[in-house]
Design a protein around this nucleic acid. Structure first.
Lengths: 199, 199
DNA sequence: CAGTATACTTACTTACATGTAAGTAAATGA
DNA sequence: TCATTTACTTACATGTAAGTAAGTATACTG
């Protein structure tokens, strides 16, 4: 296989296993077996586990933040539409992670790896922190604009609303694991929407 | 040491390590070393890891649900006071887990173990589910009463509000890990309170 | 005080995990 | 076409996890 193909294939499987099983649960052995290559080959391409996870995390954070910035760009849509768009994003992720394995643990990689922060490299930990502040900044900007436009309910402060949205968005995935699954997350978003939006 | 003392000491350390490091990260070796006993002794008392974790989980769920039922009993206090009491509970847990280790990961055992659900026994998984529904029932009952009393803002539906509170309460701990720490969680609760309460 | 259950330890086994060193077949390029 | 790099594999080293079997000291008990 050509160099970039193998590298990408390894990262794809690694992302899946990291999200499902965490840092310790995503072993080189499992990744290699899934791909029909050897563990040593992964070492050849990435050097070590921390380095591989760093790359996976980098890609994930980049893609996710781009997607979120697009949804929450303040230009076009109303606050309500943005929250509806977030439900769409969550649904897509939920379906993606339920497609392959039956158990389906649609965690965010970020919130999952935060629990294994001590196993990550310093750079990895830094990336987690950076993601957290970027996420909050995105919501804060959008909510602040919505407030200026008079879209917010009188009892919803823009900064508080941004914090709540970030908390749900970053930690949302565990919710979908409980009975009730994705529908519960959807209801949470809609309930938040009703409370935040001017009626 | 007498039988109940050793058993309890093992469970205390296990709870701490499970909350901090998850199922895989809470090794018999670490527990034994912390206590100055041998790993085999833990096997003697509990049989195996799944059995130990089941007991720890049982105790934790029981204590936590009792405490939450007390805070959210509908008799005495207003909705706002209940949310303030929740902040107090969270602060206490935060301080507890920051007292010993410097890094301080004030996770909920429940949300932490949910990520390792596949490593738990069937009984363990069932206990997680049970906790989740009990937690939701507590909030739903309190919010429903608050609604009947006219304590809710017009744009806050009791069932939605219960879901949001449960989501924050069950997954709150990760929030305190990010920069900003506990203060952020506190702000989230206060923001929710402002939006849910009739102004 | 002999015997037995209790609460352990010692000394293993088995199973995986990461990581590394050495070798190799196929493509690449001077 | 010979040399070298690329993309691997095989085999091994090392560490760490759970779990177990057999032995031991201590306390209780008839």
């Amino acid at each position: 296989m050509s160099e970039p193909d193998t590298r990408q294939a390894i990262k794809d499987i690694a992302l899946d296993l990291l999200v499902r099983n965490g840092y310790r649960g995503a072993s080189f052995g499992d990744i290699a077996e899934e791909l029909g290559i050897t563990r040593a080959n992964i070492h050849y391409h990435f050097g070590g586990k921390q380095a591989l996870v760093e790359e996976v995390l980098e890609d994930y954070a980049q893609v996710t933040l781009v997607a979120l910035r697009q949804v929450w760009s303040t230009e076009n849509s109303s606050l309500g539409d943005k929250i509806e768009a977030m439900i769409g994003v969550s649904r897509k992720r939920f379906q993606h992670f339920n497609a392959a394995g039956e158990s389906g643990q649609p965690w965010s990689l970020i919130s999952r790896l935060r629990q294994d922060a001590d196993l990550l490299s310093a750079k990895g930990r830094q990336m987690l922190d950076h993601f957290g502040s970027e996420l909050l900044a995105i919501f804060a900007a959008a909510l602040s604009t919505a407030a200026a436009r008079g879209e917010l309910a009188p009892n919803a402060q823009p900064d508080d609303a941004a914090l709540i949205l970030a908390a749900i968005a970053d930690n949302a995935a565990p919710i979908t694991l409980t009975e009730g699954g994705f529908e519960r997350l959807e209801t949470i978003y809609r309930g938040l929407k009703r409370m935040i939006e001017k009626s």
